[in-house]
Simulated scan of single mutants.
Amino acid sequence: MAPSIAFYEVSMNRVGIAGGAALLVASCAPLRAHADCFADLAGREVCLLHPARRVVTIPMPSASTLIAVDGSAQRLVGMHPSSKKAIDEGVLGRMFPQARAIDASVAGVGADGFMPNVETLALLDPEVVVQWGDRGDDIVGPLRNAGLQTALLRYGTEPLARGNLALMADIAGKPERAKELIAWRAATVADIETKARDIPEARRLRVVYLQRAASGLAAAGANSYYDFYIRLVGARNAADGLSSAPAISAEQIAQWDPDVILLNGFEEKLTPARVYDDEILSATRAARERRVYKMPIGGYRWDPPSQESPLTWMWLADLLYPELFHYDLRAEIVGAYRLLYGRTPSQADLDDVLRLSINGDARYYDRFAASASK
Rank of each mutant, 00 (worst) to 15 (best):
E193W: 00
I358W: 02
I58M: 09
D36I: 07
Q98I: 08
A22H: 11
G163W: 04
T188M: 15
G221V: 05
G241D: 15
A21T: 06
V130Y: 09
E180D: 15
L31H: 11
R338Y: 02
L124M: 04
H34W: 07
I171Q: 08
R53F: 01
A286V: 03
Y209W: 05
A99P: 01
A6E: 09
A22Q: 11
S249A: 04
R185F: 15
A331C: 00
G16Q: 00
N359V: 06
E45T: 13
V15P: 01
A22D: 08
G216E: 10
N164M: 14
L160W: 15
F114V: 11
E332A: 15
P272C: 00
I58A: 04
A107S: 07
L76Y: 06
L165Q: 15
A169R: 05
E89M: 08
N145T: 08
P61E: 12
R290A: 13
D277L: 10
R204L: 10
L339A: 11
T157W: 01
P116F: 05
V106M: 10
D352N: 02
V10M: 13
V208P: 03
L152W: 01
A42R: 14
K294F: 03
G241A: 13
I192Y: 08
V207M: 12
A86D: 07
E158P: 04
F38C: 09
Y300W: 12
E119M: 04
L340G: 01
E89S: 10
G156Y: 10
N13H: 12
R301L: 10
S244A: 15
A29D: 09
A214R: 14
E9T: 12
A214Q: 13
Y155V: 11
S62E: 13
V140Y: 01
I248K: 01
P97H: 01
V140H: 08
N117K: 12
L124S: 02
T65R: 14
E119K: 08
G19R: 11
E89D: 06
A348N: 04
S11V: 03
M12E: 13
